[in-house]
Design a protein around this nucleic acid. Sequence first.
RNA 1: GGGCGCAUAGCUCAGCUGGUUAGAGCACUUCGUUUACACCGAAGGGGUCCAGGGUUCGAAUCCUUGUGCGCCCACCA
Length: 863
Amino acid sequence: MKQELEKAYIPQDNEDKIYKIWEESGFFNPDNLVLDDSAPSYTIMLPPPNITAQLHIGHSCMLAIEDLLIRYRRMTGYRTLWLPGTDHAAIATQMVVEKKIFQETGQTRHDLGREKLLEEIWKFLRSTQATILHQTRKMGSSLDWSRVAFTFDDSRQNAVNRMFVDMYREGVIYRGERIVNWCPHCHSTLADDEVEYKEQQAKLYTFKYSKDFPISISTTRPETKLGDMAVAVNPKDERYQEYIGQEYKVDFCGQLLNIKIIADRNVESDYGTGALGVTPAHSMVDWQMAQANNLEIIKVIDEDGLIHEGFGKYSKLKAEEARQLINEELRVRGLMIAEDDLVNNLSVCYRCDTPIEPLPSKQWFVGVDKKLARLGGKSLKERALEAAKNKEITFIPERFDKRYQDWMENLHDWCISRQIWFGHAIPVWYKEEEIYCGETAPEGEGWRKDEDTLDTWFSSGMWTFSTLGWPDNYKDGLKIGDLAKFHPTQILETGYEILTLWVSRMVMMSFFALGEIPFEKVYLHGTILDKKGKKMSKSKGNGVDPLDAIEQYGADALRLSLLMGATPGNDSRYSEEKIEAKRNFINKLWNISRYILSSAKNDNLPPNPKTMADRWILSELAATRIKVKNKLENFEFSLAAEELTDFTWNKLADWYLEISKIEKEKDAILIYLLKNVLVMWHPFIPYVTETIWEQLEDGLLMVKQWPQDDLVIDEVALKEMTALQEIIIAIRNARSENKIEPGRKIKAIIKTSLPLESVELIKGLKTGISDLELVNTGEAPAGSIVVAMHNLDIYLLGAVDETKERTRLIKEKENLEKVIVGLRTRLSNEEFLAKAPTNIVDAETEKLNNYILELDKINKLIN
RNA sequence: GGGCGCAUAGCUCAGCUGGUUAGAGCACUUCGUUUACACCGAAGGGGUCCAGGGUUCGAAUCCUUGUGCGCCCACCA
């Protein structure tokens, strides 16, 4: 031991110090790891947090999982790269800054102007970015800071421009008019998945355009009817057959409309009147009908949510105001037939909650169905789907595979232009009718740059390769440098809520740029809810700052509490009690180490098992090592940690350390056990393990390799230890049941096949009885345990007596026989054999054989 | 409208491809300050695994129906 350890572990005294040592060691950077050239890479790209706000507890969960994966792989010989970064989150950031400025100065972005706003955004960004990176470090994240990236830094801007130009030249990116989701407040389009739906009370108005028009229609938005070009009915609807194809001129509240009656099978006959007024400019469905029927498109509502010029008294009114006026007019004219209450879903902006106006507008799109030569004639959508179908990309948990595929199958062209100021510029210039797309501005005068910016997912979709030096590291279809070393990445670990938003886009972008998958596996974690099971949000004020938790309990405790009791894809609740429990465990581990370090000489000798207890603990260690390894590689982090806890606390601390106080000379084994425990725990709780490691060995635990030596699982030792534990528990029980005060002289007669050395242990172990007399009769049959206690006054029959044990064994035997008969029946059933796959049959056969062996053993014990 | 998830001890949750007596943490009861640890130790109580039906030698686990929560997608004018 290099120095006396504190009585309790104080994370605050150690964590920052340790992080500094790690960082200065350079081992976060895979280039500095001491590895053969043949060492496989293991890469994770940190999903870049938005720089809109501080990290929340969900980020901590993400960091804990990814750091666990990375540290485990680093300790098993992989060239591990975990690359950090942040996301400029275009719309979100601009909104936050605008709101902040408005609150502070009352100014809008229009008052400020483009340049000043961007300046403010950059100022804001620099401060939040620093906070976020600080929080990320505090979690103990072993990220390679030398490669830190930002979705909007120079390299990423170059990559984005290049990508846009490439896609444009291949015809994947195109400009088109389309109904888009328009947010009148953000003044920008929204992608389909940026639209949210809110249930609201609304009115369904049923009316006729005019007295002489034969069909009544229903709508919740009469004001848009100013732009109606048609009335659509279901082709099978008998009520309207005679009208289909007719055209009418109507005076709708003072606006002259040409209404054609068209048939469309999307119209449902039993909704409302079964007739639908077609407003091509303000409804997605209507737009499609208009395309199919060659209808003219008249815009009624403008980008501010106001009625356009040319609609008489309605012009310049807000949509809702116009609606009231028109309703009034319809009532006056006696055309309003019904006003029914109705609950419908209002689409609102996911950022500002403003109701969406569907508007036609010129936007840039990524065509997902465009067949591409570089993808063997497949489209991005087809290739991205295929990747999931072929299991080139797999999902954890598996059910998200289906969700990914469903979403992909229904994917429409992706609108990538946004009418906001903060974001990647669209590398397009216009001159009259001419369009130029290129990485740099075109030569000559009179070119006007496209003022829009790109959807934030366009740049984050490139995250796996824009961070690795694409496009510079991609020459003539060959990856070089970092890109060759680290792409495709191994795991994308993120929250399930952005599976569609982000994951799907990364897949398409990677296929376009590199023709390969961006990652092999997608691990999706759940959401951390608050104590009551509600989503944490800023507005509710129920969020938790990870730094507070770290300050109080330490980063290790927070990490462990987030890793344990959580399963992939399922939400879990934040619980301070849980963090406290993990803090307590960490302190236990600390004290285990303190004891071992203070009592055992650290001579670095190989473990030298001498007694049954030694063989037992090494067998338990061997079993634990295998289980932990399997569970970690199977993404069962919680179960892995449970195995480790069980070994560390219930086996090592509760039994072996106590035994070591009686049987001496276990130094080599104790040190060996401690090192193994620290190595296995390190990916979960890196700080405390590294802190203890400093006392044990030179060199960092962080890069210590998992032990390769083979340990034997000694079945006899396991059995004997179980027997010993049962005896001790029986004595303790007998003592407490019979209320024997400590210190009372007691004689216990123990009949057991255990070696005498083991029986001697009982005297020293926590039986709560001093002055215990033992008699080992050595007569009992193998494996059976008989305890009889005897003091000078009272004769006690122990908790486990011979008959009890015998009944237990007989019951076990009966159960086994039943199972064996059952399995035999199945395995001789021809129908089953014909239907079941061979591996199932093999597994069942193996099970049967094991049960038979087990039964043999029991039979031997009973006879 | 379509899809997914969850329902197991008082609470929060584990429980893989069905297999012998269903686990953990917290909480609770009793006991204990033996020099690693009270952020501790020992012993213990507590579960018709949501309900009905089915498959099976055997079901918390598979199938089906229902109930109650939660989420996602589409959106009906």
